[in-house]
Design a protein around this nucleic acid. Structure first.
Lengths: 286, 286
DNA sequence: GCAAGTTAATAACTATTAGTTATTAACTTA
DNA sequence: TAAGTTAATAACTAATAGTTATTAACTTGC
């Protein structure tokens, strides 16, 4: 029996305790208090939902909600269950991101984890049993190759490097930043958060993914501010309005009265002239 | 102890034999005999490398080369090893595609499989031990929502449905076509092949992925024919040449003399003005 | 009531890109 | 040397994206 035959018949689980886990990067948009009280502008912020670990390893660290794949459960079912159990949330948009399987990524045993991205049109969490553990929305700020995850107090900032690693053509290179700096998040969840932010950022302008982050009715300014929050850059209103034309329709209502001219309320209408620009699974164009 | 706590501490592998596998959709381009002997034009074809299963289940069926994740091995290392063992190929471009984990996808036991796409700049397989099993390049033909995998003789065609499943916004729906028709490929490998073809097709025009399928030196006509083979549609030469300008440079040599005007040879030069259009891992724009 | 200030929405314009048609060049064969 | 075919480029057209300018709507302070 040569090496090839040996490996052919080999079953990892016969020799090594191996588990499959799922982890979810759940995004939402929260309209925070206006920065400038005079102008009273809405400042929607992209938020990522993290939970605090109550058990070792990484006890006390923040992590993406996750858990092990159950018997007879599909990956999607597992991630839905985990999200419901850890956050109380249900009925969110789910999309598989990437599977992380480096040996040693979990100090307990070999765990291959399938990371998902979830998008939510609301941020208030359902009332939960306090024993279910701490969960909190972190603000996601993007500037020059870094993603800064911020809880209410700056003391709990999580600085997640968001450098697009350049790689020699044709090879996959994954930089493990745990070598350079201590992990600000449990396991390799900073890599997962990074992958999720990158995916959301890139899909935002060739899909209609942004609308899964919006309430049913919204103003165009609000929608644009959400795009700006995700992209981390300012947009020009006329170009943005033209881009959204055909994807949204006015409801006839006006926004809640604030200062100055009130805005029209719109809703998403899925009537796409180009079906290739509609929502797509598996995270790639098709 | 409630349900949540139970599932928290639960390890799938304690109760169920669970394995992680990797499978690879390996693409190459083969220059086939000219269709028209008078014109003597090259007709490069997109090829997918399949292996024939020698053991049950699906004994005798064609499948993507794959195998189980070994201890201490990363997913990338596992897929590289499996490809080397089953095909003799090394040093190919690798990109994670999607992870398939539906229960019942493997009749033996629970297997979660991480599918990879691999691209190769050559099709001749290295000399191998005949006991290593049968491996063959299947032509990939695309027309109207179907992918037809064809071996030399039409008797062994594998007709893989390539319908972009439309889904209700915000939900992931995976159609399991094994319910409707008997599987033309082992396991859910037709789904994997489908995902790979879709990914390649979509990434071909916003990345430089095509060059990993090309030899070092090539003519522009040949490159265009490869694009046409992957996209399944005809392109216009002037537009294509403009698109490639900046990505390729002439070597100074002329192509092997055939009939009529000989073409210039070019090589890929990675000097991109827009780094966002360069190769990217994880299968999404960033 | 009216000017000032600010946001919402649209119109008009500019620049860039992508796609098409037409033309020229190079080479082989009869 | 003419005919045939592919290679390469030039010139033109259409579509798109981005920018500037303008108008509309509303509140507040004088």
């Amino acid at each position: 029996m040569d090496d090839r035959e040996f490996l052919e018949g080999y079953r990892a689980s016969d020799f090594e305790l191996l588990s499959v886990a799922v982890d979810a990067a759940i995004f939402g948009v929260e309209v925070e208090a206006p920065e400038d009280p005079v102008r009273r502008l809405d400042t929607p912020r992209l938020k990522l939902l993290l939970v605090r670990r109550t058990e070792p390893p990484f006890k006390g660290s923040w992590s993406l909600p996750g858990g092990f794949l159950g018997p007879g459960e599909s990956l999607e079912e597992a991630v839905s269950r985990v999200i419901l159990n850890k956050t109380g949330l249900a009925d969110l948009y789910l999309e598989q991101l990437y599977t992380f399987g480096d040996p040693g990524r979990d100090p307990r045993c070999r765990v291959v984890s399938c990371a998902y991205m979830a998008l939510l049109d609301r941020t208030p969490l359902p009332p939960r049993d306090p024993s279910a553990g701490e969960a909190a929305w972190f603000s996601v700020a993007l500037d020059e190759g870094r993603a800064l995850l911020t809880l209410g107090s700056p003391a709990e900032d999580l600085d997640v490097p968001l450098a697009a690693e350049t790689m020699p053509a044709g090879r996959i290179v994954r930089r493990s930043w745990s070598a350079s700096a201590p992990s600000p998040m449990a396991f390799d969840h900073a890599d997962m958060a990074l992958a999720a932010v990158s995916r959301l950022r890139s899909k935002i302008d060739w899909t209609d993914l942004a609308f899964t982050l919006m309430p049913e009715k919204f103003t165009l300014s609000h929608l644009m501010a959400v795009y700006e929050a995700i992209l981390g850059s300012k947009l020009l209103a006329p170009a943005f309005r033209k881009k959204m034309a055909g994807k949204i329709e006015p409801t006839g209502e006006l926004a809640a009265p604030r200062k100055f001219r009130p805005a029209m309320m719109y809703r998403y209408c899925g009537s796409h002239t180009d079906p290739r620009k509609s929502l797509s699974h598996k995270g790639f164009r098709d």
